[in-house]
C-alpha cells in the first residue's frame, strides 16, 4: 500500500489522523487554512462583543459577557495550537491575518448596534457555529476534532445565555422587544451566510468530504439551522425577516428565501461594514502589546540559570 492509500484507509475506517502521520500536502494545507481561519474568527469575534462590555445593563450581564469574550480568546488559542501541530508557527499566522492574506468569518464584519445584538449573536451566530462545529468534532484530524469537543461545550453556554437574554428583552416593554426585532432583522441573513456558498458553488466540498474534514454540506447545515431556529423565533414572538419562509410539509423542512450573494461576496472580499476597522484594531492591539512580549522574554532570560561553560 502506498502512503496515500494507507492514509485514506485510516480515514475510511473512521480512525483519526495524528500530527506525525504522513498526509498529502493538500490535506495539510487545507487544514492549516481552515483551522487558522477558524482561530482568526474566534479572535476577531471578540471585537463586536467587547463593544458592549462597558455598556452591559447589569453587573450580571457584564460578568457573563466578559466570560464569553474570554472563551472566544481561549477558543482562538486552542485552534492556533491545533494549527501548529501541522507545522506552522503562530506568529506567522498572526502576520498573515494582519496582512489581510488570511481571512476570518464574514459575520464579524457586521457592527453591534444595540444591546439586543449581544443576545442575537449568542442565539444565531453561536447557534450557527454549533451546527457546524458539532460536525467538526467528527473531523478526521485528531487535534482539530479534540479542540472542537471542548469548544462545543463552551458554545452551548454562549448560545443559551444569548437566547435567555432575548427572552428577557421580549418579555419586557414594547421598546425592548423592538430592539430584539431590530437585531434579528440585521443578523438573520448574515447568519445564514455563515454556512457559505451553495453546494453547487462550493469548490472544496467534494475533496473535504472524502477526507472527512467536512462531513455535512453547506446547504444541509444551513437547512438544519433554519429548521432548528424558526420555532425558537416563534417562542420569542419575533418575526424572521424572510417573506418566503414557510413550512414545507412534503419536504419536512422549512423553505426559505435566497441569500443576497452580492452582499456575501462583497464582505468576503473585504468591503463589509467593519472589515477595515476590525483588522486595524487587531494590528494596533498586537503592536501595542509588543513591549509586553519583549519584557516577558527579558524577564524569563534574567531568571534562567546561567548556562554552564563547557
Amino acid at each position: 500500500m502506498s502512503p496515500e492509500q494507507r492514509f485514506q484507509a485510516v480515514i475510511d475506517a473512521e480512525d483519526k489522523i495524528e500530527p506525525t502521520d504522513w498526509m498529502p500536502d493538500a490535506y495539510r494545507n487545507t487544514l492549516i487554512r481552515q483551522i487558522a481561519q477558524h482561530a482568526h474568527s474566534e479572535i476577531i469575534g471578540m471585537q463586536p462583543e467587547r463593544n458592549w462590555i462597558s455598556r452591559a445593563p447589569s453587573l450580571h450581564r457584564k460578568a457573563i459577557l466578559m466570560a464569553k469574550v474570554q472563551d472566544e480568546a481561549g477558543h482562538g488559542l486552542y485552534l492556533y495550537s491545533a494549527a501548529e501541530t501541522l507545522g506552522v508557527k503562530r506568529d506567522e499566522l498572526q502576520e498573515l491575518l494582519h496582512q489581510g492574506k488570511h481571512k476570518y468569518s464574514s459575520i464579524f464584519n457586521y457592527p453591534t448596534l444595540n444591546w439586543a445584538d449581544i443576545g442575537t449573536i449568542g442565539w444565531l451566530v453561536d447557534g450557527a457555529a454549533i451546527t457546524n462545529q458539532v460536525m467538526l468534532t467528527r473531523c478526521s484530524y485528531g487535534p482539530y476534532a479534540r479542540g472542537m469537543v471542548r469548544i462545543c461545550k463552551e458554545e452551548s453556554f454562549h448560545q443559551r445565555q444569548g437566547y435567555e437574554l432575548l427572552i428577557r428583552l421580549c418579555q419586557g416593554s414594547e421598546a425592548q422587544k423592538a430592539l430584539a426585532q431590530d437585531a434579528l432583522d440585521r443578523w438573520w441573513w448574515p447568519s445564514l451566510m455563515m454556512f457559505g456558498p451553495h453546494d453547487t458553488e462550493s469548490t472544496h466540498t467534494e475533496q473535504s468530504m472524502a477526507w472527512k474534514i467536512k462531513r455535512v454540506s453547506n446547504d444541509d447545515l444551513r437547512q438544519q439551522f433554519v429548521d432548528m431556529t424558526v420555532p425558537q423565533a416563534d417562542y420569542l414572538g419575533l418575526q424572521i425577516p424572510d417573506p418566503e419562509l414557510r413550512w414545507n410539509e412534503e419536504r419536512g423542512h422549512y423553505d426559505f428565501g435566497e441569500i443576497d450573494w452580492d452582499e456575501f461576496w462583497l464582505v468576503v472580499k473585504g468591503d463589509g461594514p467593519m472589515n477595515r476597522e476590525r483588522i486595524a484594531h487587531k494590528v494596533d492591539a498586537w503592536d501595542e502589546g509588543a513591549w509586553v512580549r519583549a519584557a516577558a522574554i527579558a524577564h524569563a532570560e534574567k531568571l534562567a540559570p546561567p548556562e554552564e561553560e563547557t
Partner: peptide
C-alpha cells in the same frame, strides 16, 4: 460553512506558509 471563508472569484486560495517565525515568539509548552 461556518468560519470557513470561501475563495472569492478572482482570488487565490493558496497561501504560502513557511514555518519560519519572524517575531521571535515565546516558546511552546
Amino acid at each position: 460553512m461556518t468560519y470557513e471563508v470561501p475563495i472569492a472569484p478572482g482570488e487565490s486560495g493558496e497561501i504560502e506558509t513557511t514555518a519560519e517565525t519572524t517575531g521571535g515568539g515565546w516558546p511552546m509548552w
